[in-house]
Amino acid sequence: MIPLFYVLVVSTLLFALGVYGALLSTNAIRILMSIEMILNAVNLNLVGFGRYITPSDPRGQIFAIFVMTVAAAEAAVGLAIILVIARRYGAAAIDRVRMLKG
């Protein structure tokens, strides 16, 4: 069996990629996808820890399923917002939206 370490490395890379994408891309869809990646990195972590540390207890897996449902909901809401932004500004370009300016 591959050790936990590898699982964590993959998860870390996935997380870093997600953060990179979320912070630096201007396309809202891509940001959303990057956030999905971050969440999946977390999922991987949860499943990994669950499998390797408490094999008899499915708590980690259950958490992962929760995260997936939340992620789905979040994606739906996020896409709806992006749709509104796209209609309003003509593109899903997040750098044009500056309504949060103080």
């Binding site: 953060v19 997040i94 949060l100």
Partner: peptide, 17 residues
């Protein structure tokens, strides 16, 4: 403080991170 408030969501996210 308002200079920090660029309205650019990603800069907020960077700060958060």
């Amino acid at each position: 403080a308002r200079r920090l408030q660029t309205g650019f969501v990603q800069s907020y996210a960077i700060t958060l991170f």
